[in-house]
Nucleic acid binder design. Structure first.
Lengths: 386, 386
DNA sequence: ATAAATAATGTAATGGTTTTCATACACCAG
DNA sequence: CTGGTGTATGAAAACCATTACATTATTTAT
């Protein structure tokens, strides 16, 4: 298509000048007018020309034409949104097949103002604990015609902020959020979203959104109790970091309460703080053993630390579980592979994910939640380490 | 907003009838008219009501009004797509802030006919091997303003088919595909897509799309060579399943060639087929040992099988690596946790992901690839198991 | 001061779909 | 067979942003 710009170039003047000539709006030298008029003629420029699309996506319009019906009818067939004669339906589906038409979801979503997209914000998919959750989320989401946009944050506030903005721009229908910490900044971040949000794997009292979780306190209590029943008396505990006011703290509390309820003295020397890494479990138990205190069992607030502890214990020549039993928390896949296999609290990761998305879908539909804080069952899987 | 349909429902007639009443276009029974009029009154229906959006999304139009400029100018500010006076820019950004405006990405993408969305099809995110890749993909994608739609297939053809269709509908700009197998059906599936595709972790000769991978043959060769150099002479191999004509086969070939090049006899009794699971590694080595053949080393085609083998070996009272050394392939996280830690081929998972997305972005931009099959470096990480 | 260029901004078409309102046709009861 | 209605369909207005093209302001050069 010829544009004013083309004419301008041909005539060797600016587009503004061409415009002036066309509209007689301002004075123009006769020579200039001459040049411009010539260019217009040469190029056959025509103000009223209609532009035609370059891109050749097959659209609902093409289908409509092919089937000899209106776009509306095609839409009705596609969405089953109204009764359509059998014949018409046939024609339409055939046209769709013939043209290999696939409806543009973006256009649909723009019109419908829903995107069938769920944001999934996670600190680290590499970690199988989260991997299991993601899988639960994705499976069930897709069964409900939603897709998942995955965003890995590494737990960094700046990245989380960006992620949330991206999700806002994309107008996701909802968000499943998992963070490392839940401080005021995160809460501000989330509260600024106008789509529903569900938090997985956090204690309910920290945060003001629906959560899906297990009862960390009770699980730790039960595990400790189990150890006591098995005859262990001197049970060490490797906890989470000082700052962790959430799951880690709950687990610690469960441990202490179980001791108390069994009339066992809580001993500060038997408790150390870790940071959920393998190393910290290793060092944690080392701290205790180096004081020449030898517990008969160690309960770590997560599996990584338990495995780290096992390593040190074995290095010191103790045998597991004969000298020192070890128990963990989470049931990450590696617990099955270590020697001896680790007794641990089984978190239902896949179900956590599924329940999270179920809850989110309810919120999206505007349904009321019976319970804002869903607590799933855990299991204690006894293996050879105790 | 009240629509004709609402009135029709209230009055218990069809919309057509309501229309007739409204326009006096055709005859209508007095009673019907009565009913309809009543309904109209009750619902306060007003033909001329300007329909206003129910959804009250803040749009670029609002920003334009607020800032006293045209929508085009707002767009220019947002996208930095043309020069705008400092003052105008100020006004616009201020309006954006004030209204807390966030541009609707779907509308943008519809117009631009690109979605900044990448499909990521994967057999199992739960598996840390894939988890690492996903992370590499997502990180780099986001740095380039792309988002990732994650689709977990469990390797099932039916699900893969659905996934691909979803991605087509969503008009993703590209796809990163990982599958368990690559048969004709998958190839058909992929070839039916009109966006660029990159395959991660597959041998180039199987498939006709750009791939990112390591050299499985060479890696297995090097590992075998390393074992031989360490003095092992009787090296067993636990391979992939019979059907696996890809990575597993390459690894086997590398193993055999290394033997040959070192003038070691290849011995069928020292080779078993597994299926990449822990159990199959356990059984595999059992098969060999039960024949009273005792190798001095075992090389498994992946880590899971290696760990399974370790387990059986230890159970039989052999010590690792003194009696039998063990080596694996992949470097999944658990290799660091087993006792002794496993010597293995390190696949650069994160880089595989990153390179995959890099390649895909090139394709999306329409750039030529220097190399259609990118081969990344691997490492051999020697630990205590050899 | 005038004519032209350049910079800044506006207008309106466009992207592909859904959905509301409107209507042609077919059916049914009297 | 005809008046009254429902059913199947069509036309056109949304949805929100981008962008091609046009135009108005502001410089620059003569």
């Amino acid at each position: 298509m010829t544009t004013i710009a083309d004419v301008a170039e041909r005539a060797g003047v600016s587009t503004a000048t061409v415009s002036r000539v066309l509209n007689n709006s301002e004075k123009v030298t006769p020579q200039t007018k001459e040049k411009v008029d010539l260019a217009i003629e040469e190029l056959g420029y025509n103000l009223k020309q209609v532009k035609q699309s370059e891109k050749n996506e097959i659209t609902i319009r093409d289908v409509a034409t092919e089937a000899g019906v209106s776009e509306a009818t095609v839409s009705r067939v596609i969405n089953n949104s109204a009764r359509v004669t059998y014949q018409t339906k046939e024609k339409v589906t055939q046209a769709i097949d013939e043209l290999n038409y696939s409806p543009n979801a973006n256009a649909r979503h723009l019109r419908r103002s829903e995107t069938k997209l769920i944001g999934l914000v996670i600190p680290d998919i590499w970690n199988p604990f989260f991997g299991g959750i993601v899988r639960g989320v994705e499976d069930l989401a897709r069964n409900n015609d939603y897709n998942v946009v995955l965003l890995n944050t590494s737990g960094l506030l700046a990245r989380e902020r960006k992620c949330i903005n991206v999700l806002k721009d994309r107008r996701v229908d909802g968000l499943i959020y998992m963070g490392k910490t839940y401080d005021q900044q995160r809460i501000d971040l989330l509260s600024n979203c106008d789509f529903p949000i569900v938090i997985i794997s956090r204690e309910e009292n920290e945060i003001d959104y629906p959560t899906v979780n297990i009862d960390n306190y009770q699980a730790a209590y039960d595990m400790t109790n189990y150890l006591i029943e098995e005859g262990y008396q001197k049970i060490a505990f490797i906890g989470g970091p000082e700052e962790d006011k959430t799951a880690g703290l709950k687990r610690e509390k469960g441990y202490r309460q179980a001791l108390a309820d069994n009339e066992l003295q809580f001993d500060f020397d038997l408790m150390v703080k870790g940071d959920f890494t393998l190393q910290s479990g290793y060092q944690g138990i080392a701290e205790i053993l180096k004081q020449n205190i030898v517990p008969d069992a160690v309960f770590a607030a997560n599996d990584e630390m338990a495995v780290g502890a096992m390593k040190y214990i074995r290095e010191q020549g103790y045998s597991i579980p004969e000298d020192i039993a070890v128990a963990g928390f989470d049931n990450i896949s590696l617990v099955d592979y270590v020697e001896p296999r680790l007794t641990t609290v089984v978190q239902p990761v896949y179900e956590l994910g599924q329940t999270g998305i179920k809850t989110l879908l309810k919120l999206i539909k505007g349904e009321e939640l019976e319970d804002n804080n869903i607590v799933l069952d855990y299991d204690i899987e006894v293996r050879e380490s105790t």
